[in-house]
Every structure is written in C-alpha cells, then in structure tokens.
Simulated scan of single mutants.
Amino acid sequence: MRAATIAQLKKELQHRSGDEILGLCLRLARFKKENKELLTYLLFEAGHEEGYIEAVKQEMDQQFNEINTDSFYYIKKSVRKILRAVKKYIRYSGNKETEIQLLLYFCEKLKAFKPSIKNNTALINLYQRQVDFIKKRIPLLHEDLQYDYGVILEELTP
C-alpha cells in the first residue's frame, strides 16, 4: 500500500467532520510514540516555546549526567543518542530560534563534558559538525538574534 500525498490527505480531511478528525488523530497517536509526542507538543507546548526549550534543556542535562564514562565508546553512543533526541524535539517545534538555542546548549554541554572530548576524534568531529550547522543557520534569523547567537557561537568555536 502506498501512502497518499499531503495534498491528497488535506483534501480528504476537509470532507470529514470534527468528530471523525478527532478519532483519526487519537488513532494515529496510539500507533507511534513520536506521533503522540508531536501531538503533545502541538496541543500543550506550542504556545509556551520558552518552557518547552527549558524542558528539553533539563532533559539534556539529565542525559549528560547519566552518560557512562568508562570508555569513549559508551560516551559516543550516548552523545549521539542525545543529539538524535534533540533533533527530534527541534523537528517538533519547527522554530529556527528554538533550533539554534537547543543546538548551542548541546554544544556547550559537550564542550564542558568530562572527560574532555578532545581525546576522541569522533566526538570532536560531531561537535564541529554541529558548530558548522549552527553557523549556517544563524543568518536565517533576525539581525539582533544573529549578533547574540554569534557571540555565543564564538565562545564555542575551537
């Protein structure tokens, strides 16, 4: 079975009643955790972006504290897992400012992490890719925000 296009889905949803759409949304949320998380963001967090950012930062702090530091293998796996989660939360928001704030915070946490990431090439490369990605995204923001985030980014640049 092939999935319908967004345009086809939109056209079909316009012909459905509010109760039918509600039922479809609830059924969709039942099948995948990401669908439920996205629906939660849209219903409860979208209007409170600052609170959402703080909640994601707290979760990041907790995940960084739980990293097994016995070897760099475990550190790399954990850092990649954290980054995947952060990217997922960024996708939910869709806000460019939120994206840059969360990625800057991730880079700050990674740079301050003990043992130092300077002892591992893979972690240095991961860090550098995120810094480069942020550099590309900053020009898309308002001028005042560009300056503010540019200053923070300069502190993070090795």
Rank of each mutant, 00 (worst) to 15 (best):
G23Q: 15
C25Q: 10
A112G: 03
Y92H: 06
E12L: 15
F133P: 02
S78R: 05
E37C: 10
F113T: 03
E155V: 05
K88I: 00
F44C: 08
I6R: 13
N120I: 01
F64P: 01
R27N: 09
G94E: 00
N68S: 08
F44D: 02
L145I: 09
Q101F: 05
V131D: 02
L13A: 13
Y52Q: 01
S93T: 00
L22I: 11
I82G: 02
E97D: 06
K10Y: 13
S17Q: 13
T69V: 10
D19Q: 15
K33N: 09
E99G: 03
N120H: 13
G18N: 12
Y92V: 00
K76E: 07
P158I: 08
H142N: 15
E97I: 08
K32N: 13
A7W: 10
I90N: 00
S78K: 07
Y41P: 01
K81V: 01
G23H: 14
E59R: 14
D132A: 14
A112H: 11
N68E: 06
A55T: 05
N68W: 05
A46E: 03
Q63K: 15
Q58H: 12
A29I: 05
E154G: 06
I21H: 07
D19I: 15
L24V: 12
A85E: 08
L9V: 15
H15F: 11
Y41N: 01
T121C: 06
Y127W: 08
A85F: 10
Y89M: 04
Y92T: 00
R137C: 04
E54D: 12
S71R: 09
K10D: 06
L26F: 11
E12A: 15
R16N: 10
G23M: 14
H15W: 05
R16C: 15
V131Y: 06
K136E: 13
H48E: 04
D144S: 13
R129G: 08
E97V: 11
L13D: 04
K111L: 08
L153M: 06
R84M: 05
K111N: 05
K57I: 02
L42I: 08
K114D: 04
C107T: 03
A7S: 15
P158T: 05
G51D: 01
F64H: 00
T40I: 05
L140V: 11
N65M: 10
K10H: 13
V56A: 03
S78D: 03
L43N: 08
Y149H: 04
K114V: 09
I100K: 00
N125D: 12
P115K: 12
F72P: 00
V79R: 01
E66Y: 06
K88V: 01
A46W: 02
E49S: 11
I21A: 04
N95K: 04
T40K: 13
D19T: 15
L26T: 07
F72D: 00
E97T: 09
R16V: 08
S116Y: 06
K109T: 02
L110R: 03
Y74T: 04
R129A: 13
K77A: 08
I138R: 03
V131C: 12
R84D: 06
L145C: 05
I138W: 05
S17D: 10
D148S: 11
T5D: 09
L140E: 15
I138C: 06
K135F: 07
L110S: 02
L43I: 12
H142Y: 13
F113Q: 04
L43W: 09
K114H: 10
E154K: 15
H48C: 01
E66L: 11
N120W: 07
K36W: 05
L42H: 04
E54P: 02
V131A: 07
